[in-house]
């Protein structure tokens, strides 16, 4: 009895510290992967396509989460990095006829650099001003994509159309299913990298900078480098998501990357759970399926719902769905312990 109790306590402690995966977490991950693998077999191609988008947005949300949740930097400009990733993929596939899978590392690198460069001046900006600068970035992106002298590449207002890739190796599955699995694997890899990055030394440094920048600097953390690198990595995640999104939707155009895309990613982060890696998946689900439901009321309804959810979350559920789940779990185990 006592040994059981001890194990439970250790489990909760490990869960709380996030240092090591508990048995429960292993089970959770296994179940999530299993569900992820089975889903496309059960639903139509169109649904599968939507689930691909869920994964894409989850990736973008994770990118923003790395920046905001773990490093305390704020961005309303992630639509810009999403756009850069998307256009990188589109231009490579359309202009140079490069295979879609090569576009992902390219989009990642381009966004890493773009994010790092944007992160450099942003270093000097505290919370609110960073929000302002990224807000400006986000607003300025669509017109920039329409810019005449770039239209040879970007296709101007028309954008670029790309073709959806077929499944390789003669696999007998639909394009949508293939793209889903492809995205799924990319997401797993990126999740693993994020988890690995954030649990150790680097993660501690990022959180230290978030919670007390001056103390962090005094401890010898190169805050400037860490902050701009985090910006870069965050942009990389979002950029890869953008590339995958472009491939899935088969089309990029300036008006897909307005400020409201940033809002959507923000909504995903807030509702999924700020500072939570698994929460990002819930973020992706919210971004894709809330509009689906809400659109039946009115074309404008999804955004009204998003906005309301944002505000309600701040009042009642500041840690999002994942925080809610954790709290519920903690309460449950505590009660069991009390019995």
């Amino acid at each position: 009895m006592d040994a059981q109790l001890g194990a439970k306590v250790r489990e909760i402690a490990a869960l709380a510290s996030g240092a090591k995966l508990s048995r429960l977490q292993w089970i959770g991950i296994a179940v999530a992967i299993a569900v992820g693998l089975i889903v496309p077999l059960l639903v139509s191609d169109y649904r599968t396509f939507q689930f691909t988008l869920v994964l894409v947005y989850a990736m973008a949300v994770l990118g923003l989460n790395i920046l905001t949740g773990f490093n305390g930097q704020f961005s309303l400009g992630h639509s810009a990095f999403f756009a850069i990733g998307a256009y990188t993929a589109a231009i490579m596939m359309d202009h140079w006829e490069i295979a879609y899978y090569w576009t992902l590392p390219a989009a990642g690198v381009v966004c890493l650099i773009a994010g790092f460069l944007f992160g450099l001046p942003a270093l000097r900006l505290e919370g609110l001003y960073l929000a302002l600068a990224t807000f400006a970035l986000s607003i300025a992106t669509p017109p920039l994509l329409k810019y005449d002298h770039l239209s040879e590449w970007t296709g101007g207002v028309q954008g670029v159309v790309i073709t959806k890739p077929d499944a390789p190796f003669g696999l007998q599955i639909s394009q949508d299913n293939w793209l889903y699995y492809f995205t799924f694997v990319v997401l797993l890899v990126l999740y693993f990298c994020a988890w690995n990055l954030l649990r150790g030394r680097t993660g501690r440094a990022l959180k230290a900078i978030r919670d007390n920048p001056i103390a962090a600097q005094a401890m010898g953390i190169n805050t400037a480098l860490y902050k701009s690198l985090t910006f870069g990595v965050s942009a990389l995640y979002t950029g890869v998501a953008g590339a995958l999104g472009a491939i899935a939707i088969q089309f990029v155009a300036p008006d897909s990357f307005t400020f409201f895309l940033s809002v959507a990613i923000l909504v995903g982060m807030v509702i999924g759970g700020i500072g939570s890696i698994p929460g990002s998946i819930f973020g992706g689900i919210v971004i894709v399926f809330v509009p689906n439901v809400a659109e039946q009321i009115s074309k404008a309804a999804p955004w009204a719902v998003y906005g309301t959810l944002l505000i309600l979350c701040m009042y009642f559920m500041p840690l999002g769905i994942w925080g809610f789940i954790r709290m519920g779990y903690a309460r449950l185990t505590r009660r069991r312990k009390a019995d």
Partner: peptide, 22 residues
């Protein structure tokens, strides 16, 4: 916190924009 406040403002922005469209 700045984060909470900015998020509420973004929520407001989104609500007004969509209400107008609606």
């Amino acid at each position: 916190s700045v984060l909470n406040e900015v998020i509420v403002f973004i929520g407001l922005l989104t609500i007004f924009n969509s209400l107008a469209g609606w």
